[in-house]
Design a protein around this nucleic acid. Structure first.
Lengths: 128, 128
DNA sequence: ATTTTCTTTGACGTCAAAGTCAATTTACGC
DNA sequence: GCGTAAATTGACTTTGACGTCAAAGAAAAT
């Protein structure tokens, strides 16, 4: 018998609310099993949630996340659809590369700020 | 006489609406000059807008962006404040590093998807 | 068995970040 | 100077992503 997770176990693990997970189900991102009305999350659901949250962290909308999941679940078979998908993938890639650059730059800025703080601290409170 | 930009020039350059720039002014992120009621944007405002949009792209809230701007404009002088700031900087750094990792992973996924598309395309429509 | 502790459902609320719209006011092109 | 295009302001609306109840049904613990 495969192990399953309760909803609160997962909320604790991932730091999200039950509302969030139910919301994701309403949005068609996950489909946990049911025993009666109670949701049973399997390892596959858990992994999917991890992916969803990763998407969320980098700013994907629910719709985008759903799209990606959809593509994995049932990839388009028709050539036109495939080309369309590749175009969208390309766009997303550019988007993410820009974001990565933005992040690098901001990390540099943060370094500068921290340095400035240290310098300033050394100037005033010479202790600690 | 220094050159200035009109609001629509900037909206076109950055792909945002006038409402957005006025919103940023309302939120105290920028302070363009005025001739009568009309806003005049200087090069400094323009650069600031670039930074704001960069912050936006990586998911900073208006409040966070305002905070960063504030720190540049008038860095805290008191030791406690400085340490607090450094803590916040550290947190942000962790956050951004996680995001960078998320992006790397997602870029990999996108590569896989694209490959799969190409393979599939080769299988069906053997010509272009 | 019954208390306590989840869990679910559904409806409504909220919050950030703008979008939209209407009614004026400029500014510009000639 | 005058018409037209652009800018401003203020109010209201929207959108996405949940939060917050309340009421009621199930589970677990004693």
């Amino acid at each position: 018998m495969e192990r399953y997770y309760t909803i609160t176990e997962l909320t604790r693990e991932f730091g999200v609310s039950t509302r969030t997970l139910r919301f994701y189900e309403d949005e068609g991102l996950i489909h946990p099993e049911r025993r009666g009305r109670t949701r049973l999350f399997r390892a596959a659901d858990r992994r999917l949630i991890q992916e969803i949250l990763r998407g969320r962290r980098i700013g994907f909308t629910i719709a985008e996340i759903r799209e990606i999941i959809q593509v994995y679940k049932d990839p388009p078979g028709e050539a036109g659809q495939l080309r369309l998908l590749m175009k969208r993938v390309d766009e997303k890639r550019d988007d993410l590369k820009q974001k990565r650059k933005d992040i690098e730059e901001t990390l540099n800025e943060l370094d500068h700020i921290e340095e400035a703080c240290l310098t300033r601290l050394a100037e005033i409170g010479v202790g600690t």
